[in-house]
Simulated assay, not measured.
Amino acid sequence: MDYTIRTAQEKDMASVLELINELARFEKEADAVELTADDLICDGFKEKPLFHCFVAELEGNIVGMALIYPRYSTWKGPVIHLEDLIVTKEMRGTGLGTALLNEVVKYGNDLGVKRISWEVIDWNDPAINFYESKGANVMRDWDVVQLDEKGIKAYLENI
């Protein structure tokens, strides 16, 4: 398979959004994506971008992506967070996910980060097995905690 992994460009954001929507459908959250391609362009390609994105391209089509952003650990120092690693259904099992993860790990290493972290939904056994096969520690004793926009507003109304 002759695909290319490269840093995403503004022109790729519509395809990146398609992949994000494909993941949302897979995770049974088809209506949860609120972002637009313009939002991705605005957030990812300004003077201080909020994220870095790699895309996998095959015959001129974007067939995978990995989106990361910086974080800071009070225990370790600089880290990056892998928000999503997405491979189209047709490309799963071809080594493309490994190629994207390789780019993320090389990028993190070049930045000198102390950790790369991400979440995986607990029923996605193929993804869990994939990450564990790469040496990742899937920490099942931690829970993800979030305040969504509605929760933020409700919180602020009560302080």
Score class of each variant (00 low, 15 high):
91 M>R: 09
30 A>V: 08
32 A>M: 04
79 V>H: 07
84 D>H: 10
58 L>V: 04
69 Y>V: 01
131 Y>K: 02
115 R>P: 04
40 L>F: 06
39 D>I: 04
92 R>G: 00
126 P>G: 05
87 V>R: 10
105 V>H: 00
18 E>F: 06
39 D>A: 05
141 D>A: 03
66 A>G: 07
117 S>Y: 13
89 K>E: 15
121 I>P: 01
152 I>W: 07
7 T>F: 11
123 W>M: 10
8 A>Y: 03
85 L>D: 03
15 S>H: 13
32 A>L: 06
149 E>H: 14
41 I>A: 06
17 L>F: 08
126 P>Y: 07
20 I>P: 08
50 L>N: 14
36 T>C: 03
155 Y>G: 00
68 I>N: 01
14 A>Y: 11
42 C>V: 12
28 K>F: 01
78 P>L: 03
96 L>S: 04
154 A>H: 15
138 V>H: 07
145 V>A: 11
131 Y>I: 01
68 I>D: 01
149 E>V: 12
56 A>F: 06
11 K>E: 08
61 N>Y: 12
64 G>I: 07
94 T>D: 04
118 W>H: 02
121 I>L: 14
122 D>P: 04
59 E>Y: 10
139 M>I: 12
56 A>E: 03
63 V>Y: 04
91 M>G: 06
44 G>Y: 07
49 P>Y: 09
96 L>A: 02
52 H>E: 11
90 E>Y: 10
88 T>L: 09
